[in-house]
Design a protein around this nucleic acid. Structure first.
Length: 264
DNA sequence: GCCCAGGCAAACT
DNA sequence: AGTTTGCATGGG
């Protein structure tokens, strides 16, 4: 009834609550509760791995990108001074591979918004339109339901219409989210940007967190971070690891900026 | 009150 | 084709 994933490289707090996914909550004793698609699970970081209350090994190996050797990647990225610091500051950070529709809607909601409020909107969206899978637990809603859902009342603000548009296009075949796996990154991005409310940034987040496609460094859209750290171009050691490098730099920049601004 | 938050679309030069 | 502005909402 549960599954132990062997890995020494996993920081639950950073990976689950750092802004890739929005449905994980920290419980007592380093446990986490999360809803992934229509699975509600509890997770605990243990000595040499992750204990999770669901035994679908293939699913979780994919979700946590287990076949990727992050320690080796960190070693490569550490050739660059800034990236070495960024890797040290975000030790155990992995890239999740999430379900495309849920990721798309989540990052539409994320625009001009903060993680706490994003999570709240998503919970209300799920409670209102998702299938009930447990006491007070709801799956992420389907595109069919969201296509014509009245989204007033979940606090999404001006993003409500964007959610409807994305759901409609995913539902009526204008965009086939499953087909994006096989596409070139640029082509997949072009498809996503047909949706109202999806620009380069949202598209890139979806490409990265659902499809594992990194557009960086070609499409430089981690705005300030790259300008500040690499005004003269990117270090060669990033090649092949654009996605994780991007996420490390994002964390690093966010930390530094928060410290500078006196936030936590 | 003010500013910001993993931006984007529309309206401007 | 680049730059500015309005947008809903809640937390710090």
């Amino acid at each position: 009834m549960n599954y132990f994933i062997e890995t020494n490289y996993f920081n639950a707090e950073l990976t689950l609550t750092g802004g890739q996914a929005f449905r994980w909550r920290r419980l007592e004793n380093d446990r986490y509760f999360g809803i992934v698609g229509s699975r509600a699970v509890e997770l605990k970081r243990e000595k040499n791995g992750i204990r999770i209350s669901d035994n679908d090994e293939a699913f979780w190996n994919n979700y946590f990108d287990i076949q990727t050797d992050y320690e080796q990647i960190v070693q490569c990225l550490s050739e660059d001074t800034t990236l070495r610091a960024a890797c040290r500051g975000a030790d155990g950070l992995r890239l999740l591979k999430q379900e495309p529709f849920e990721t798309l809607i989540s990052f539409i909601i994320s625009q001009n918004n903060n993680i706490k409020r994003i999570a709240g909107i998503i919970e209300r969206l799920c409670a209102s339109f998702g299938e009930k899978i447990g006491a007070d637990t709801y799956a992420f809603p389907t595109a069919e339901v969201l296509a014509n859902a009245d989204l007033n009342g979940i606090g999404a603000g001006y993003r409500a219409g964007y959610i409807n548009d994305a759901a409609r296009k995913a539902q009526n075949g204008e965009i086939n989210l499953s087909a994006l796996y096989e596409m070139q990154t640029d082509e997949a991005r072009f498809e996503l940007m047909k949706i109202k409310g999806v620009g380069e940034k949202v598209a890139d987040c979806v490409l990265l967190f659902a499809y594992g496609k990194a557009t960086f460094p070609k499409d430089v859209h981690i705005k300030q971070a790259l300008r500040e750290f690499y005004p003269d171009g990117l270090p060669a050691c990033i090649a092949g690891y654009e996605g994780i490098a991007q996420q490390f730099l994002f964390e690093y920049y966010r930390n530094n900026r928060n410290i500078k601004n006196g936030r936590k």
